[in-house]
Amino acid sequence: MKLALGPILYYWERETTFNFYDEIAASPVDTVYLGETVCSRRHTLRTEDWIEVADKLAAAGKEVILSSQALIESESDLKTLRRIVDNGKFMVEANDMGAVHRLSAARLPFVSGPHINTYNPQTLSLLAELGAKRWVMPVEMSRVALGHMLRDRPSNLETEVFAYGRLPLAFSARCFTARHHNLPKDDCQFRCMDYVNGLTLKTREGQPFLALNGTQTQSASVYNLIGELDAMRETGVDVVRVSPQAFFTAKILRLFREVMDNRLPAQTANQQMTKLMPDQACDGYWHGRPGIEQSYLQASSAENAA
């Protein structure tokens, strides 16, 4: 199995982002997804900057994939999409059917991202015929359902699973971070930059429930399938995705790598991770349960690093 790093879902300072990828270039990750997938107003890195980062990572031996935005609304969003599709060097992760349309029309191979609703083998075959070389399972899919999907999977189609990070659960046109600050989206003052791991939303009795990340809503808990790597291998998973967080991402990647290479027991890695996560763990979706539930080792929660 290969280890991948998903796109940064948060809005970080330009320098922070460059430094982050310098560290990633030296980390034991095989594949890196790059680009802004959440909000078109975020602009510390433009498409050219992302391609510059991509070149550096490729030079460091990483497979680089450019991720397209999940919610494409305006003509300017479509322009950005076309620039990404026509980059001429790197494969693209499609996160909207508009992207699938452009990529398949150009006869380019692509990754079908986690935001393309792929729930049955018929849809999976269709995507493969259109040029998908890899698909990322929807986050709410269980191991059992994935097994059914892969019974007759198209040849030359890799399967990737979102295996670590706050889960991207929903997209809206509304910015919930701006709303929290009573700002209109068009004058949001980029307040999401203050919340490098998202802004935690709690219930009225203090239970961390969701994380607001601009127009994206995430789980507050951190999805963590480090204990399920053997099960993933048995089910036919080819690529394991870690989603970036503001701190300790390289350490998380190393722990995944060591467990995948059988150099560290999953339990030990899991133990070490509790101190590295922005919130407690969850793994319900993988077991066909509500996503918020946690069954593996009932890991104790770490204090919110933010």
Binding site: L169, A170, L210, G291, I292
Partner: peptide
Amino acid sequence: RCALSSYATG
């Protein structure tokens, strides 16, 4: 594109 309900209830 909303999995909030399954996150809470399955």
